[in-house]
């Protein structure tokens, strides 16, 4: 029996370095499948962040540029302005996008850059070992909020999707989750639509993916999925925030 290719063409045949139960693998695969289905492997350019997925070019089998922390939207802007007919997306975590890179992400949205951002929100800094993120929930324990995030002291988590949906240049925003198969399918639908919106040249599109970090949450992979349901979804409501009726 011939060896069956079990992964998308746009994903290299490699073992993830990601921790068991981490959402990165799932989201990478979704992106790979979407790129295959849209047949854009030859014209897509991804921008990798700083964070656990800094070297996602080890897995993505298409052109990728690794960017400085938070600067992926600016790098993507440079690429897209040179190659306006290519499909350019950034893949960024919550520290990268919602802390150090806040200016860059707001301004790609405000300019309506014809780009797509996949925003991985797991409410914690993964790679640097579990510090508070801008999206860390109230009372959530992290290595820099050992007694839990005190909102009077550390402030409140940022709802990035809501904020970016307000920008005129943003045409599509959806918050999705990866905690079960049904939601993974929904996530893929949203990501595909975001890419198609870019293909149609309509403006900026963003998909926020509520994701797990079992290692830094100090939970099992299975309990991590439930933690999304119990803790994240109540604060970061799922669903479309902008561009629901756009047909592409």
């Amino acid at each position: 029996m011939a060896k069956e290719r079990l992964h998308p063409k746009s994903i290299k045949d490699k073992v993830w370095h990601y921790c068991p139960g981490c959402s990165h693998g799932i989201v990478h695969r979704i992106i790979g499948e979407v790129i295959d289905e849209l047949d854009i492997q030859g014209s897509v350019i991804g921008i990798a962040p700083v964070g656990c997925s800094y070297n996602n070019y080890e897995y993505f089998d298409f052109d990728v540029i690794q960017a400085a922390h938070g600067r992926a939207p600016a790098v993507a802007t440079g690429v897209k302005r040179v190659l306006p007919n290519h499909i350019v997306f950034t893949y960024q975590g919550d520290g990268d996008l919602a802390a150090i890179g806040t200016a860059e992400i707001i301004h790609v949205a405000a300019r309506g850059e014809k780009l797509t951002t996949i925003f991985i929100n797991n409410a914690i800094y993964g790679m640097t070992s579990g510090q508070m993120a801008p999206t860390t929930l109230p009372q959530q324990i992290t290595t820099t909020t050992p007694t839990g995030r005190d909102t009077a002291y550390h402030g409140y988590p940022i709802r990035i999707s809501e904020m970016l949906a307000l920008q005129e240049g943003t045409v599509f925003v959806e918050r999705v989750s990866t905690h079960d198969v049904k939601h993974i399918r929904q996530a893929k639908k949203a990501i595909k639509k975001a890419f198609k919106i870019q293909q149609a040249g309509l403006g900026f599109s963003l998909v926020e993916v509520l994701s797990t970090c079992p290692t830094n949450w100090q939970l099992s992979p299975v309990d991590s999925q439930q933690w999304i349901v119990d803790n994240m979804i109540p604060y970061y409501g799922l669903g479309n925030l902008k561009g629901k009726d756009i047909k592409v």
Binding site: I65, R71, V75, G78, V79, E104, H107
Partner: peptide, 19 residues
């Protein structure tokens, strides 16, 4: 393109040069 900051501008340069 008038960027939002010098930081963004140099990173746009990084992207355009990569392309």
């Amino acid at each position: 393109l008038q960027a939002e900051s010098e930081i963004a501008a140099i990173n746009m340069v990084y992207g355009a040069s990569s392309a």
